Computed example of a mutant assay.
Amino acid sequence: MSTMIFSRTDDTPGIHGHTRDCTGAKGSSTLAKLGEGDIVVIDAPDINRALAQKLIDAKVAGVVNTAAFTTGNVPNFGPQMLLDAGVTLVENADPALPGKTKNGKKGRLDDGKIFYGDRSIGKGEILDEDTARTRFLDAREALVDHMEALSGNTAEFVSTEAPLLIDGLGVPEVEVDMDDRKVLIVSPDPELESKLKALRYFIREYDPVLIGVDQAVDELVRHGYRPSVIIGDPELISSDNLRSGATVILPADPDGHAAGLERIQDLGVGAMTFPAATRDATDLALLLAEYHGASMVVNLGPTVDLERIFDTASAPDTPSSMLSRLKVGSRFVDSSAVAELYRVSRSGGGWLWAILGIIAAVVVIILIAGLSGSEGFVDNLIDSWNNIATKFQDLFS
């Protein structure tokens, strides 16, 4: 359903309003500045109720999504809420659109296209009420089927890997001491660099055992960290880092076959195999740290949440991911939670400046006292202190 709004100064068709880019790192701050009639660009597959309500409360006129408002993974209410509020929805827009959108510039949304003047900067597909409703019902049925399949896969995985999950049968014995120590597992992640930077104070304070997974090993080393354990496919890791002296573990099939074993042999690197029904190296790293007595296991990598569980594309690995984290239990911590504990807000440094001010004042007083009088610095300081003490004694006597 398309809403037609005509400007008093412009009779061209479509929605006229200020364009706002709410994607990327600054997206949340831009959301707080939305105004009535704005044309908003977002990147929100399966848009949820919370975001939809914010857009409705801001009284935006149009929302252009570089993703699909409903992917089919979950029956989300967001699209229907926006349509009921009279907001025009455009989805699957050009991925480059956010880079062309200028915050606050007057634009026009018409027939799925965003214009600046007569120039189109991107287009997408208009989402109507009938399509949104049909997708919601289809997604609800698909989710039930997916969860039933996931339940069966989880039961099968438990049946196959009960010895591993219960008694750690098959977990390699390593010489790296993890007993009662904190372990940081670093896995491939689109935000690895920023997440690793946010953990620098934690790493400096606790010196955790570092376990690098797959290509994240090279990223770790590039940032100045040296993992004690490397676990993953050797084809994804540089030769120098495989030869670094770290304990190398290869994920293997239950029959013992491990991908990349030939490369390890060619490099002359000693390696162990970790046979399991999953080839997810992060899950194996979690089980390794738990078995060897880690007091806390911090995981830097993609999180396993409801979105991951509902995602049909990750279905084969989901049982392993869930159960490995359940095995670690209360000792499992996501890196974002640890980073939050070490985050210093911009306004939180006031106490530090106050302490520095007090120290500076004390230094000034000492210098004035020490340089006053005809005696040496120390003698002048002692005389000044005695005079101050005498005055306080007379005052309270």
Rank of each mutant, 00 (worst) to 15 (best):
E290I: 07
G270L: 05
L284R: 12
L326W: 08
A289G: 14
S320T: 01
V298T: 07
V328T: 15
T303F: 10
S321C: 11
T273D: 07
R279I: 11
V333H: 12
M272S: 14
A313P: 00
F310T: 10
T312E: 13
L288S: 05
A285K: 08
R308N: 09
S335Y: 10
P316E: 09
P275F: 07
S320A: 15
L284E: 02
E290T: 14
T273R: 15
A271I: 03
D317K: 13
N299H: 15
F274M: 08
R308I: 07
V328Y: 07
V297P: 04
S335F: 02
G293E: 08
P316N: 11
R325V: 04
S335L: 00
T273P: 00
S324Y: 04
V304R: 04
R308W: 11
S320P: 01
V269A: 01
L287S: 03
H292A: 04
E307V: 05
P316L: 12
D280Y: 11
S336Y: 06
Y291N: 14
A294R: 03
L287M: 15
L287V: 11
S320L: 00
E307F: 02
E290V: 01
I309N: 03
A315Y: 06
L323F: 06
P316D: 06
T273W: 03
S314W: 10
N299T: 06
S330M: 03
S324N: 05
I309E: 07
S314A: 15
R325L: 07
V269R: 02
A337D: 14
L323Q: 09
S314I: 04
V269W: 01
D334T: 08
A339W: 01
V269L: 02
V298W: 08
D283C: 14
T282H: 02
V269M: 00
R308Y: 13
M296G: 13
D280K: 12
S335H: 14
T303D: 15
F332D: 03
A285I: 08
V298E: 01
L288I: 09
G270H: 15
S336Q: 09
V298L: 07
K327M: 09
R331S: 14
N299L: 09
P302C: 10
F332G: 05
S320Q: 01
R279Q: 15
L326K: 08
L300P: 04
M272E: 12
A281N: 09
R308T: 15
R279W: 10
L323K: 12
S321P: 00
T312A: 15
D280N: 15
R325N: 07
A271H: 09
A315S: 13
V269H: 05
P316Q: 08
A271Q: 01
A294E: 05
P316S: 08
V333Y: 12
H292V: 02
A285N: 11
L286Q: 10
A289W: 05
H292K: 06
S314V: 14
T282G: 14
A337E: 13
A315W: 00
D311R: 05
V338D: 00
T282V: 08
V328W: 02
F332R: 01
V304A: 06
R325M: 12
A315L: 14
P275K: 06
G301S: 10
Y291P: 00
T318S: 12
L288R: 02
L323N: 10
